[in-house]
Nucleic acid binder design. Structure first.
Lengths: 117, 117
DNA sequence: TCCATATTTCTATTATCATAGAATAATTTA
DNA sequence: TAAATTATTCTATGATAATAGAAATATGGA
């Protein structure tokens, strides 16, 4: 493996760790869960806040963190900001965990997570 | 949904968030990766430390955290402590994420994570 | 029992994070 | 342009986490 490959891999791990950390608090995991349930449209900030009972400034920080880790996307419609889950990023993270746990080492059996017919 | 169901579900989310947080730092995600690569035997503490270049007291705290979230198991053999990944816990977490992202809302397509033949 | 080795626990320091009220900025509508 | 609404940014506080050297503990062997 080349030096730059190693560096790339190291950055990759750091990125996945940051993504996991971003989802690693109860309020933010709930936000992700809620956004996934409203996928792909997503929800406006105030609706997330009222649904999860989070003050707006606190919520704004959580959304900022999720956005920073590319776990959510945002688009403006008038005065409203619509946040939605970033499916591609989640897929990549899930793929990484899946590979580490199942593919590479067979620690976890794929069929125990999902059964494909 | 009954009140106790709601409470159970709330505790579940908190637990998954804690598990994600436990893996949400670079050193600990590396530890998990390393333990998975050595699954199911695992590794002794000193080998993890030398492989990842982490001082023993720091490593001990990280392992304690992972153990607390039930992501790793430990067994003693003489003076050596063998740490190994807890495949069942990882499977459960992966199953949860999978369900949230793929099964429930179809935000992520299962076949893009794993292709079962 | 005493020593060597493995690992944890103690202790301290520094850094980061979660929370939220108040003020500000952005946008639409009257 | 003024008012109303939406959301962020400012500011502050308290809590938690990461790090690691030094001391203590646990185990096996001489």
């Amino acid at each position: 493996m080349t030096t730059s490959n190693k560096k790339q891999q190291a950055e990759q791990i750091t990125r996945y760790a940051d993504m996991l950390a971003a989802m690693g608090t109860e309020p933010r995991l709930r936000i992700m869960q809620l956004l996934l349930s409203a996928h792909p449209e997503g929800l406006v900030v105030s609706d997330i806040g009222s649904e999860l009972d989070i003050p707006s400034s606190t919520l704004s920080h959580h959304l900022e963190k999720l956005k920073h880790e590319d776990l959510v996307r945002v688009r403006r419609e008038g005065t409203f900001l619509w946040y939605s889950a970033n499916a591609e990023a989640l897929q990549e993270l899930l793929g990484f965990l899946y590979a580490e746990c199942c593919t590479r080492n067979k620690a976890v059996e794929p069929q125990k997570i999902v059964c494909c017919k």
